[in-house]
C-alpha cells in the first residue's frame, strides 16, 4: 500500500481536505479556500480471522470490508456506506452500539499523515496493547483535524449466529423493565410508545427471550439510517424527557443516549477546550488539514 504517495499528496503546505465517499455530511463547515482534495489509500492489506484483525487503507469502502469479513463469519463494528477512514473520523456508532460497542473501540492501530506530511503510527497491531499513550482514541471523532488517516488495523468480531428484531408496546416503565431483564440486547430503540429490540445470539435463546418477555417479531430496524437529519447525544438517563418533549417523531437508543431527531441538538459546545486547542496547535499549527470543518462539530 502506497502510504508515501498519500503523504506526498497531503504535502507540507497549503490547505488540504480529505474526502471519503461523502456519504455523511459534515454538519458544520466554514468557507475556506482548499488547495487540494485528497483521498486515502483503498484496499485490504491483510486479514487474519484467527487474530480478529484486518489491515486496510483508510479509503477502503466499508462495503468491501463487510464482504471480506463476511466470508469468515466476521464483521467490523463500523456503520454506514462510506469509507473506513470516514467512519472513524466522524466516530458515530450504528444503532447496534448497545451490543457491539462504540466506534472508538474498533481501532487498534492507525498510521496517519500529519501537517508536515510525515507518517505517524499510533496504537499497536494486536487486540490488546498498552504500549505508550492511546493516541488512536484521539483520531476517532477528530474529523481529520489532527491528521489524515492512511492505514488502519481494525478489530473484527464474530457475526452472531442469529439476529432478530422484535417489538412491543412500551411506556417508559416497560422500557426500564425490559432493559433490566433482557441479557445484552444488541439494540433497544424507543419512540415514546413502541420499543424495537434486536436480539443477537443463539436462535433458541432468542426465541425463549421473546416468548418470556412478550415480544412480537418485526422485520428490521424501525427507521432507516438516513431518515433523521440529526442525532443527539445525551446521558441515557435523559432519554425519556427528551423523547416526551420532542415535537416530531424521534427514536432513541435506550441505554446508549443517542436520539435520532429532526431538529439539531441545542447547546453543543462548538469551540475547542484548552487541551484540544493545544493538541490542534501541536498537530496542525497552521490549521491546514480539513480547515473547512468546524471543530468540534
Amino acid at each position: 500500500m502506497d502510504l508515501t504517495g498519500f503523504a506526498e499528496r497531503v504535502g507540507t503546505s497549503g490547505t488540504v481536505s480529505i474526502r471519503g465517499r461523502s456519504s455523511r455530511t459534515v454538519e458544520r463547515t466554514v468557507n475556506v479556500d482548499i488547495d487540494r482534495v485528497v483521498t486515502a489509500p483503498n484496499g485490504v492489506v491483510e486479514y487474519h480471522p484467527d487474530e480478529m484483525t484486518i489491515t486496510c487503507g483508510a479509503g477502503t469502502p466499508l462495503e468491501s470490508i463487510r464482504n471480506v469479513t463476511a466470508e469468515n463469519g466476521q464483521s467490523v463494528a463500523l456503520p454506514g456506506s462510506g469509507t473506513v477512514g470516514g467512519a472513524l473520523s466522524v466516530g458515530r456508532s450504528g444503532i447496534d452500539r448497545l451490543g457491539v460497542g462504540p466506534v472508538r473501540d474498533t481501532l487498534l492501530q492507525a498510521t496517519f499523515v500529519d501537517h508536515r506530511g510525515e507518517l505517524i503510527t499510533v496504537g499497536g497491531p494486536t487486540v490488546k496493547n498498552v504500549s505508550g499513550f492511546d493516541l488512536a482514541r484521539l483520531l476517532v471523532g477528530s474529523f481529520g483535524r489532527l491528521g489524515f488517516i492512511a492505514r488502519v488495523i481494525l478489530r473484527t468480531r464474530p457475526v452472531p449466529r442469529a439476529s432478530s428484531w422484535f417489538e412491543t408496546d412500551a411506556d417508559w416503565s416497560r422500557v426500564v423493565e425490559l432493559q433490566t431483564v433482557l441479557y445484552r440486547p444488541a439494540a433497544l430503540l424507543w419512540n415514546g410508545d413502541r420499543l424495537a429490540i434486536r436480539l443477537d445470539g443463539d436462535p433458541d435463546d432468542i426465541a425463549e427471550s421473546s416468548r418470556r418477555f412478550g415480544l412480537s417479531p418485526r422485520t428490521g430496524a424501525p427507521f432507516a439510517e438516513n431518515e433523521f437529519t440529526h442525532r443527539w447525544s445525551v446521558a441515557p438517563i435523559e432519554v425519556p424527557a427528551i423523547v416526551r418533549s420532542a415535537r416530531a417523531p424521534v427514536w432513541a437508543e435506550v441505554g446508549v443516549g443517542i436520539v435520532h431527531h429532526v431538529e439539531p441538538q441545542p447547546s453543543r459546545r462548538g469551540t475547542p477546550n484548552r487541551i484540544e486547542l493545544r493538541l490542534l496547535d501541536e498537530f496542525d499549527p497552521d490549521r491546514r488539514l480539513n480547515p473547512d470543518v468546524v471543530f468540534p462539530q
Binding site: A235, R269, R274
Partner: peptide, 25 residues
C-alpha cells in the same frame, strides 16, 4: 490545578476523545 471533565455519560461527547487518551496515560 484546573479541574476538567473528560468524556461524559453521553455516548458521543463533542470534541476529541480526551477520556480515551487519558486512560492508559
Amino acid at each position: 490545578g484546573q479541574v476538567v471533565v473528560l468524556g461524559g455519560e453521553e455516548p458521543e461527547p463533542d470534541g476529541l476523545d480526551l477520556r480515551g487518551a487519558f486512560v492508559g496515560s
